[in-house]
Design a binder for these strands. Structure first.
Length: 348
DNA sequence: ACTCTATCGTGAGACGAG
DNA sequence: CCTCGTCC
DNA sequence: ACCTCACGATAGAG
């Protein structure tokens, strides 16, 4: 389940590593997405709607913004993660978790849909989050879009959350370099911090939460040294603690197979055939959405040509202008404890 | 009395009509 | 703009 | 036929 309380820690101790943007700020960017998280969120949020439809709509919205998505699929989870998965399965009163990494029919449907949308996808050898981060590290992708914080200890410089198709939705960007700078720790020390906070790959020391863990890492730099300086009575170290294995998982990046990422035009007829005839989505919905997609694309293309003709320097100013006018008032509530005034921004 | 942590329950999307 | 019903 | 995650409230430990 990601890194426990890492989002809170950043918000409190390194707010400058967080910036608030909107979806159009990512025009032209290559963004890696953890597909299983996207799909599962759709499934959880809309039991009545197939995740395929959600994936269809959201992906088209990305493409309309000239965002280049690349979807990453989970492979076989690492050995260390099985404990966490089994625990989760038991909580859900459900028999045997999928530890094999074999693609479910759900996954195959997603692969097929993405192919028809002309969007590239990659099968990760292990955790999708790890490969997403690696794509950013090697420059193949500009950022990872995910809801959980795992990609930061995996080394992705930029993590984007709340990237969805909602109008006016606020996108939250986390900068790993800014975070490390502010906390005054290295990537290796940050990984140790995340292990202390609690990750999927090993146990944690009960009684150490975000405040204490951060202080201890800043003072002693490594888990080994931290262990030497805590009270063993009140904070017992887990038996057979696999923290070294967890550390290795975060720091040893999976090697990618130099993926040649190619985006092509969506195949509308094939999409109708698949979504409507195989999956029983209403033809009207698919057609209407594709119509809108084509129109949005066309107007964007015209806009770009106009910009080219008028010179480039003006274009950024125009975008800035629209951004300012369109942007809702977003008072940077850094140290505001009386945050009960939600819809009442005080007149400056 | 205070600060920090652990645990449990809960809610989460995107569209178009009006 | 907004609210609300529907999507499968 | 399954695979989530973060937030808020609350209770308990130090």
């Amino acid at each position: 389940m990601g890194i426990t309380k890492l989002a809170d820690l950043i918000r409190f101790h390194a707010p400058d590593a967080i910036s608030h943007k909107e979806i159009s700020d990512f025009t032209g960017k290559v963004i890696a997405l953890d597909t299983s998280i996207v799909v599962n969120q759709f499934r959880a949020a809309t039991p009545t709607l197939s995740p395929l439809t959600g994936l269809f709509f959201r992906t088209l919205t990305f493409l309309e913004h000239d965002i280049k998505p690349v979807f990453v699929f989970d492979g076989k989870p690492p050995e260390e993660k099985t404990a966490a998965l089994e625990k989760r399965a038991e909580a859900a009163s459900w028999k045997c978790p999928n530890l094999t990494g074999t693609a479910s029919s759900q996954t195959k449907d997603c692969l097929h849909l993405l192919k028809l949308l002309g969007v590239p996808f990659i099968q990760a050898p292990g955790d999708a989050e790890a490969l997403c981060a690696q794509l950013v590290r090697e420059g193949t992708a500009d950022a990872v879009a995910s809801e959980d914080m795992d990609t930061l200890p995996f080394g992705a410089n930029i993590l984007i959350r709340q990237l969805n198709a909602k109008r006016d939705s606020e996108v939250v960007e986390y900068s790993l370099p800014k975070l490390l700078e502010k906390l005054q720790i290295s990537q290796e020390e940050f990984v140790d911090l995340c292990i202390l906070l609690g990750c999927d790959y090993c146990d944690k020391i009960t009684g150490l939460g975000p405040k204490k863990a951060l202080t201890l890492i800043q003072k002693h730099r490594t888990i080994e040294n931290v262990v030497l300086h805590i009270n063993r009575q009140t904070h017992p170290v887990p038996h057979f603690w696999k923290y070294k294995e967890a550390r290795k998982i975060f720091l040893d990046a999976p090697q990618t197979v130099d993926p040649k990422l190619i985006w092509t035009e969506p195949d509308e007829e094939a999409l109708v055939g698949f979504l409507c005839h195989v999956k029983y989505v209403k033809v009207e919905r698919v057609r209407r959405r594709m119509e809108r997609f084509r129109q949005t694309r066309e107007s964007k293309r015209e806009e770009r040509e106009r910009d080219k003709a008028a010179g480039r320097s003006r274009q950024t100013r125009m975008e800035d202008f629209f951004r300012v006018t369109r942007k809702r008032e977003q008072p940077v509530e850094a140290a505001d404890s009386s945050s009960s005034n939600r819809k009442r921004p005080k007149s400056t």
